Amino acid sequence: MNAPVLFREVQKMNQMWVWLIVAIPIIISWYGAYQQLLLGKPFGNNPAPDWMILLYFLIFGILFPIFFYSIKLVTEVRKDGLSVRFYPFHLSFKTFPFETVRNYEVRTYNPLRDYGGWGIRYGPKGKAYTTAGNRGVLFEFADGKKIKKLMIGSQIPEKFAEAVRRGIKR
């Protein structure tokens, strides 16, 4: 049975500039399918066969936007530890027991410079789970003799850190 949840935050990839970039293949696939499959006009200078246009439309016009829309970072602080799930990449929560937490602090960071962007990232300052913004909680975990760092992005990092403090106190 799961421990009671002290804190929960669900974040989605909702930056406008990201959706504008994602929209490019979506619009092209919809337009190409409309042009060639519905109007019967070849799409492009060297048109692909109809089956390929249909496949491209299904992948980039339907499945890709559904996949991208489903991406979310779920962070929970429970009595037994910190749990993180970056759906759909993590099939279940990754849990970090409080006993392994050596330090944590609310931080403002540069997602591009420090971690190489948003998502599940590995950068010069360690690993990060981020979806938007530039604030979060930086954790240091003991892994044997080695310390591992993990930045977890948050829109409400002070509440997140306070829940971690309450959880560790228990």
Rank of each mutant, 00 (worst) to 15 (best):
S83F: 15
F93E: 06
G40K: 03
I66C: 13
M52N: 12
I71K: 05
F57D: 03
F98P: 02
F68H: 07
D50Y: 10
G116K: 02
V101C: 04
G32S: 09
W30L: 13
R85P: 02
M16N: 06
V106N: 05
I53D: 05
V74Q: 00
Q35V: 10
T108V: 14
V101G: 04
Y115L: 00
P124K: 14
W51A: 14
L73V: 02
L82P: 06
D80I: 02
A23N: 01
V74S: 05
N45R: 13
K125R: 14
L38P: 06
Q11C: 04
I53R: 07
K94F: 07
E99T: 14
Y34E: 09
I62P: 03
E9Y: 02
V18L: 14
D80H: 05
G81Y: 00
Y34D: 08
Q11G: 06
Q35D: 11
A128M: 04
S83G: 11
A128V: 04
P25R: 01
M52T: 12
L38S: 13
K94P: 00
P49N: 10
L39E: 10
L55S: 11
W118V: 02
H90Y: 08
T108N: 13
F93S: 06
P42D: 01
Y87Q: 15
G61V: 02
K12A: 13
G61M: 02
A48Q: 15
P124I: 15
F43S: 07
T108W: 10
P88K: 05
N46A: 14
M16K: 12
S83L: 12
F57C: 11
R121N: 03
I26R: 07
K72N: 15
I59M: 08
H90V: 08
V101R: 05
K94Y: 09
L55G: 03
L91T: 15
F98N: 01
R102A: 14
D114M: 05
D50H: 11
I71W: 05
S83C: 07
Q15Y: 04
R102Y: 15
G81C: 00
D50F: 02
Q35N: 12
P42F: 06
L39A: 09
Q35G: 03
H90L: 06
Y129H: 06
Q35L: 08
P124Q: 10
V22I: 15
P88A: 00
Y129C: 01
R107A: 13
K72I: 05
W19A: 09
Y129E: 00
N45K: 14
E99Y: 09
L82F: 08
Y56D: 06
L39Y: 09
V74G: 02
K94L: 08
I26S: 09
T75V: 10
M52V: 10
Y87S: 15
P49A: 14
V22S: 12
V84W: 02
L38R: 15
K12Y: 12
F64L: 07
G32L: 03
A48W: 07
V101E: 04
G44M: 06
Y34P: 08
E9P: 01
G40M: 01
I24P: 05
R85C: 08
L91K: 15
P42E: 01
I59G: 09
E9A: 01
S70G: 04
K94W: 11
I28R: 13
L63N: 00
Y69N: 11
